Simulated assay, not measured.
Amino acid sequence: LDKVSFSIREGERVALVGPSGAGKSTIFELLQRFYDSNEGCVSVFGQSVHDVSTEALRKRLGIVSQQPVMFSSTIKHNIAYGNEDASQKDIEAAALAAHAHEFIEALPKGYDSYLGEQGTRLSGGQKQRVAIARAVLKDPDILLLDEATSALDSESEYHVQQAIDELTENRT
């Protein structure tokens, strides 16, 4: 990235578009402080990301990526990751908002179903909806979607897009 500058107002939706390697994901990584810029300043909520603790910053950010991280645990744990005090009711409400509740309930043990290594028991669209449910439960001020529907079939993309539309309402 070179000489990139932009501002996003609270509640505004912005799409970063460009070819592979243009820096879209790098901007997300800079926002989350996975690494720091060599020059210039990255600010969130009017403050440099260097002036806010990484923990405090990341609590206000939610991300749904093309390849969401799934843990070798239950669906309930995967949704509640980062919000371990969440109640079953909260987890189910997040899954409903993410259009995931129906397929979760159809699994042999519902929310207590084990996903296997990297969520191998779920389709790509189901993994995306679990990741969206995780973001819903986190209730972030800023939601980062990194090609969240790029590798999905049309039916899965429809469900994921419905969930994203609801999740992004009144959010940056």
Rank of each mutant, 00 (worst) to 15 (best):
S5N: 08
T54G: 07
H50A: 15
I104M: 00
V130R: 00
T74V: 09
A80S: 03
L61M: 12
S150F: 10
K127A: 08
V49I: 15
G62K: 10
V49A: 08
T26H: 04
F45C: 08
A86R: 06
R60W: 05
A133V: 00
Q118T: 11
E147L: 02
T26G: 01
R129T: 08
V52P: 00
A93Q: 11
V4Y: 05
K127F: 08
I8M: 05
P19Y: 08
S5Y: 02
V136G: 10
P140C: 13
G124R: 14
F71E: 01
A151P: 00
T120Y: 12
G40Y: 09
R129Q: 09
F28R: 02
S73G: 07
S65Y: 06
T74I: 09
S65I: 04
R58W: 03
K109T: 06
V44H: 03
V42Y: 06
Y158V: 11
V64G: 02
T120H: 10
T120M: 13
Y158P: 06
Q66V: 00
G23F: 11
H50C: 14
V49P: 06
S150P: 10
G18A: 09
Y114H: 15
T120N: 14
P68S: 03
G40K: 09
D165M: 09
E147Q: 02
K3G: 13
S154T: 15
K24R: 10
A151E: 01
L137S: 06
Q118F: 11
A95D: 01
A106S: 10
Q47P: 07
V17F: 04
R60M: 09
R13I: 15
D141M: 14
S156C: 04
I8H: 02
R129P: 09
H50I: 13
G18E: 12
K127N: 10
S87D: 09
S43V: 04
E155K: 07
L57P: 03
L57N: 03
E157A: 14
Q126M: 03
L143P: 09
V17L: 05
F103G: 07
V64L: 04
F103M: 07
A93K: 13
A148N: 10
I132E: 07
T149I: 13
A100S: 12
R129L: 08
N83K: 14
V4D: 05
S150A: 15
E166V: 15
S53A: 08
E84Q: 08
S20P: 00
G124T: 14
E55D: 11
A80Q: 02
T120A: 11
A163Q: 12
E10Y: 05
A15S: 03
L115K: 01
I91K: 01
S7F: 05
N78G: 04
E12N: 02
K24Y: 08
L152K: 03
T26C: 03
G125W: 13
S87T: 15
Q118P: 05
E10C: 05
D90M: 06
E55H: 11
A163E: 12
L57A: 03
A86E: 07
R58S: 02
R60D: 13
K76F: 14
I104A: 00
Q161A: 12
D112S: 13
G119D: 01
D153P: 10
S87K: 07
E102L: 06
I27T: 01
H50R: 15
I75N: 01
E55P: 01
R60N: 14
V130I: 02
D141I: 12
G124S: 14
K24S: 08
Q162R: 15
T149Q: 13
E117Y: 05
S154Y: 10
E147H: 02
S43Y: 04
F71A: 03
V130Q: 00
H99S: 14
G125P: 11
